[in-house]
């Protein structure tokens, strides 16, 4: 039994079906990359796992426990599942430190002093300890995204969802953020990430899934997908990515 099981998930906005029966298993300590064109459903899938979107069919299980449908303690689920967004979404009225300490204090009930200590350690691990008192609007995009990652990590989630976290960054800032994700992967954190950084996906992913039009068209190891894609759509997508110089 896999750690995170996504089973035949359907999601629609009104009559528009965005996910058409997606199934995906993520084992413990595995890093799974979702690739595919914009609008293929990558972000929606991640938001469904975190229950930010309600699903219309199928089931999602974490560690054998069903986390979709009525009666699920969403706040408890979200303690286990961290998500980092493309647009960082830091709280602009709180300092960096307050952003990181908020959930541990309010949700996990950690004492203030301990929360501060843990937050500072985490900030130091991404080189942001000197900005603890700064407000998000004083930081660059890369710095904000590093804080956003730390904010999610502070809840000690068992699986992290990363939703195109480098897509909004200037090219020279992408490297720092990816380096952090690389370290997390090496540290054995279970991760499911949507990304346009094919080179990075190739390097860290134990499994790559190509999403097209709301379903997983092809999946396999990074070598299989990038070197010998079977499906025509995958080939087209990858050749376009190669042309744009992203692989």
């Amino acid at each position: 039994m896999a750690f995170l099981e996504i089973d035949e998930v359907h999601k629609s906005y009104g009559h528009h079906e965005v996910l058409k029966g997606v199934s995906l298993n993520v084992e413990r300590h595995e890093v799974v990359c979702l690739i595919g064109a914009s609008g293929s459903g990558k972000s929606t899938l991640l938001r469904c796992v975190n229950a930010l979107e309600e699903i219309q069919g199928g089931e999602i299980r974490i560690d054998g426990d069903t986390v979709t449908g009525a009666g699920v303690d969403l706040n408890a689920l979200r303690r286990d599942v961290g998500i980092v967004f493309q647009s960082y979404n830091l709280f602009p009225h709180m300092s960096v430190l307050e952003n990181v300490m908020l959930a541990p204090i309010r949700v996990a009930g950690v004492a203030k002093g301990e929360a501060r200590e843990r937050a500072m350690t985490l900030l130091a691990s991404v080189g942001m300890q000197d900005y603890a008192k700064s407000y998000p609007d004083r930081l660059s995009g890369g710095q904000q995204q590093r804080v956003a990652i730390v904010r999610a990590l502070a809840m000690q989630p068992r699986v992290m969802l990363l939703d195109e976290i480098t897509a909004a960054l200037d090219p020279e800032l992408v490297g720092d953020v990816l380096e952090i994700v690389r370290e997390l992967a090496n540290g054995g954190l279970t991760m499911l990430l949507a990304t346009h950084e094919m080179g990075f996906a190739k390097e860290v992913a134990s499994q790559v899934c190509f999403l097209d039009n709301g379903s997983i068209l092809e999946r396999g190891t990074a070598e299989q997908i990038f070197e010998q894609p079977r499906e025509e759509r995958t080939q087209q997508f990858l050749s376009r990515v190669v042309k744009s110089g992203r692989l």
């Binding site: 979200r78 709280f91 908020l102 959930a103 309010r106 949700v107």
Partner: peptide
Amino acid sequence: AAARSLGLS
């Protein structure tokens, strides 16, 4: 979304 995803009610 960011607040709810952290587990805040």
